[in-house]
């Protein structure tokens, strides 16, 4: 997991001929995102270490008059760093990548829209559409879900399986996982919305992960199922706050109401009347 970053000293970087303030050591892609300079990317996730898997965020770095390509998600800002984001080389590289992604994830709207924004609407590569693919032919194998599951959550329920063109992400043996908390971190980080999860009554079903089922716990007040049981138990064990009791029993909505009522009672005394 990423260490808490200490901001480096303020420096200046040049992107497409314009100067921007940044902190030394900051990831160039995050500078670009902050400054609203468009660089396409799929596998960048601020809460994880830079990985450089999707190759879409390539920029050209100008050094001593020479240019070389680098992924902006692994490039660290340094004083005087100069990059270009839309050179003919980059445009060519990006177009090929989009064509490859269109073939790799033919059912992904995210990829289709992103590629179209950069003028790529068709692919010359063979589209591989697999019937019954648990990830709906939308996965680009960027690995964010695998890393979020293992590096952030410490669950390690999913991983890459096989190799080369046969590589997929799923649970071992395509069997329901005992390591999955049902936290849904994988669903959140997935750049192509490939992972399906559904709350059905007292259970959360990880539809993409071999139908893994995780029990949910209900809110004591309204009865709504709101959090995976095991996950809340492990989070609560680490929490040290006076609110612990309420967090353990109430869903966020009822917790809000509960706190508001306590506040009112504390101010005015007496009893609160239920409507």
């Amino acid at each position: 997991m990423i260490q808490q970053e200490i901001p480096g000293k303020p420096i200046t970087v040049t992107i497409n001929g314009k100067e921007y303030r940044a902190n030394e050591g900051e990831i160039l892609l995050s500078v670009a995102i902050r400054e609203k300079i468009e660089i396409p990317h799929l596998c960048y996730e601020a809460s994880l270490d830079p990985y450089g898997a999707c190759r879409l965020c390539m920029v050209e770095v100008v050094r001593k008059g020479k240019r070389e390509m680098a992924t902006s998600c692994t490039l660290r800002a340094a004083d005087g760093l100069e990059v270009l984001t839309d050179t003919p080389e980059i445009v060519k590289h990006r177009s090929i990548l989009f064509e490859l992604y269109l073939a790799e994830a033919p059912k992904s709207d995210v990829i289709r829209d992103m590629a179209a924004r950069y003028g790529v609407t068709r692919t010359r590569f063979l589209k591989r559409i697999e019937q019954g693919d648990p990830l709906g032919n939308k996965c680009v194998l960027c690995g964010l879900c695998v890393r979020a599951c293992s590096e952030i959550m410490g669950a390690g329920a999913i991983n890459f399986i096989n190799r080369g063109p046969y590589t997929v992400v799923n649970t071992p043996y395509y069997a329901p996982s005992r390591d999955c908390f049902g936290c849904g971190a994988c669903v959140r980080v997935c750049p192509t919305n490939a992972i399906e999860m559904e709350d059905a009554g007292a259970e959360r079903v990880m539809k993409s992960w071999s139908g893994t089922r995780v029990p949910l716990s209900p809110c004591e007040c309204c009865g709504r199922y709101y959090a995976p049981r095991e996950l809340s138990a492990s989070v609560l064990a680490r929490l040290d706050t006076p609110l612990k009791e309420e967090i353990a029993r109430l869903c966020p909505e009822c917790r809000g109401k509960h706190i508001a009522r306590e506040e009112i009672l504390a101010k005015h005394g007496g009893s609160a009347k239920h409507a």
């Binding site: 293992s150 390690g156 329920a157 999913i158 991983n159 890459f160 399986i161 096989n162 190799r163 649970t171 071992p172 043996y173 996982s177 390591d179």
Partner: peptide, 10 residues
Amino acid sequence: RISQLYGLAT
């Protein structure tokens, strides 16, 4: 984790 071992073995 079994997911890591299975990943290696495959």
